[in-house]
Simulated assay, not measured.
Amino acid sequence: MAWHKLFGERATTKIAAVFDSEAAAEEAAASVRSQAGLQATQVLLVQPHEKEYARKLEPEPQGVARTALRSHMILGLAGLVAGAIVWMALYVADLPAILSSPGVSALFVLFLGAIAGLLLGGLITARPDHQLVIQRVQTATEEGRWSLVVHPRDARQCDAVMAALAASGADVARSV
């Protein structure tokens, strides 16, 4: 299965870099835009002590909702199919508990498979890998530092952004 089909967001990776001055942050933003070929909406600055920066970290609320729907539907169905395969394997193995009540055992195993898939869909929707980036920006904002938040849309853009930020000497955090 292609993992990108689970996501409804155009930019699934987040990269944040922290700077001590506005000039350094703006210079890095210009460098990132030019080297990676990003649009202005993909490169956002968070000012020191800014209160409403959450939208800059998650600029695609509709994409997050699509991710929730897609990941739960696809992985819930995949869990259901996996449960059916497990039940068939147990049935073919002639397990007495399965053979004595095949209907109830099938429902039970299918239910467990579907729940496992739905839980995995919830984990993908929650995106725990984004927490490192979010925490880095929050800490920088509270400390009175500038943050550059970048939303690359593919692997080529990610590599170009990371190279540009490495050259700037910034403190960088990246999600998967």
Rank of each mutant, 00 (worst) to 15 (best):
I85T: 04
W87F: 15
L107D: 07
G144H: 10
R153M: 11
G122K: 05
L112N: 09
L77Y: 02
M88G: 09
Q135T: 11
R70K: 15
T67W: 02
A116N: 10
S100C: 03
S101E: 10
A126T: 08
P61S: 08
P96L: 13
Q157I: 02
V81H: 01
V92I: 15
L118M: 14
E143M: 14
A140K: 01
D154G: 05
L118P: 05
A97R: 11
L107T: 12
T125W: 15
L80E: 00
I98K: 02
P59H: 09
T139M: 04
H151N: 04
Q62S: 14
L118G: 12
A155I: 09
E143I: 13
F108I: 09
G117Y: 04
A97K: 07
M73S: 10
S100M: 10
G121K: 03
G76N: 02
V92Q: 12
S71K: 04
P128Q: 12
G122H: 11
L123Q: 07
A68E: 05
L90F: 14
L95Q: 13
A84E: 08
A126H: 13
R145G: 01
V137Q: 01
W146S: 00
G76R: 04
V81E: 00
G79Q: 05
A126E: 03
G76E: 03
R145D: 02
R156K: 14
S101Q: 07
